[in-house]
């Protein structure tokens, strides 16, 4: 029996007196494509950061690949694309190739050195993501969408089994976004990698994700997409009209 990817039980996170997450529970199985959705300030990023050991929970338990995040040491199995904003990477002098290559460091032990094999993997992933032409450009000279693709390449270059993506489509134009989702679907369905993706793009992700976690500081809904579309809790929270707009579109798309 394979170890589950993540188990979260009654997770609560507070910053000072402010409760950011309250009694969150859910489970991620190998091969899942989980979309984490919710309004601004609902705690989506804090949730993923808690899973990765970047934020200390106030109470509750988290298991990531069978380990507590604070003791986690299987980073070679994890890829992470953080949320980016306009000021990220401003003035940083590295080239795209240097940034993407740093994704291979999870596979190395001290003293970390990159080999010809690592550089070949970088060339391959740049090609897969379609950013070979940017390889020698400086990261701070790129648009938000280009930087997102660079960081996606970095999160994938080590061949990690699990990808945590924090709003990876926020700066992409519609055509690039569709290609991006197609790529994620291939990664998930053909390569069998698990994806946990935070997004506001709930209108599109429904066609690709097989599980939904809708949070607003606490879990409003967790389950598969058809359950999401029929959930009374979501209808009460979202309003039937908005829920219909998201679900009507993708139920048609998912019909073979």
């Amino acid at each position: 029996m394979s170890v589950s990817i993540a188990d979260v039980e009654n997770l609560t996170v507070q910053y000072g007196d402010t409760e950011v997450l309250s009694t969150i529970s859910f489970h991620v199985a190998p091969g899942d494509f989980l979309a984490v959705v919710g309004p601004n300030g609902s705690g989506k990023t804090t949730l993923v950061k808690s899973l990765l050991g970047l934020v200390e929970p106030t109470s509750g338990s988290i298991s990531l690949l069978g380990q507590k995040p604070s003791l986690f040491d299987q980073w070679n199995r994890i890829g992470y694309l953080p949320q980016i904003s306009g000021n990220n990477h401003k003035g940083f002098p590295a080239t795209v190739r240097e940034i993407v290559a740093s994704g291979r460091l999870a596979l190395k032990r001290f003293p970390r050195r990159l080999t010809a094999c690592d550089h070949a993997a970088v060339t391959e992933i740049l090609d897969i993501i379609g950013i070979t032409d940017l390889a020698d450009r400086k990261i701070d000279r790129l648009s938000g969408g280009q930087r997102q693709r660079v960081l996606l390449a970095r999160s994938m270059v080590a061949g990690s089994e699990v990808l945590f993506l924090d709003e990876p489509t926020s700066a992409l134009d519609p055509a690039t976004r569709d290609n991006f989702y197609q790529l994620l679907q291939d990664i998930n369905q053909i390569q069998g990698r698990t994806i946990v993706m935070i997004t506001h793009d709930s209108g599109t992700v429904g066609a690709y994700a097989d599980k939904f976690l809708y949070i607003d500081r606490t879990v409003i809904f967790f389950g598969d997409f058809s359950g999401f579309c029929r959930s009374p809790a979501m209808t009460a929270h979202f309003g039937g009209h908005a829920q219909h707009l998201i679900c009507g579109q993708h139920e048609e798309e998912k019909v073979p």
């Binding site: 950061k49 992470y80 590295a94 970095r154």
Partner: peptide, 18 residues
């Protein structure tokens, strides 16, 4: 490499096991 990636993004460096 550890110093490079920590300078680039502190949190990503953590997730790379640094």
């Amino acid at each position: 490499h550890d110093m490079f990636v920590t300078a680039f993004e502190h949190e990503s460096a953590h997730v790379l096991g640094i």
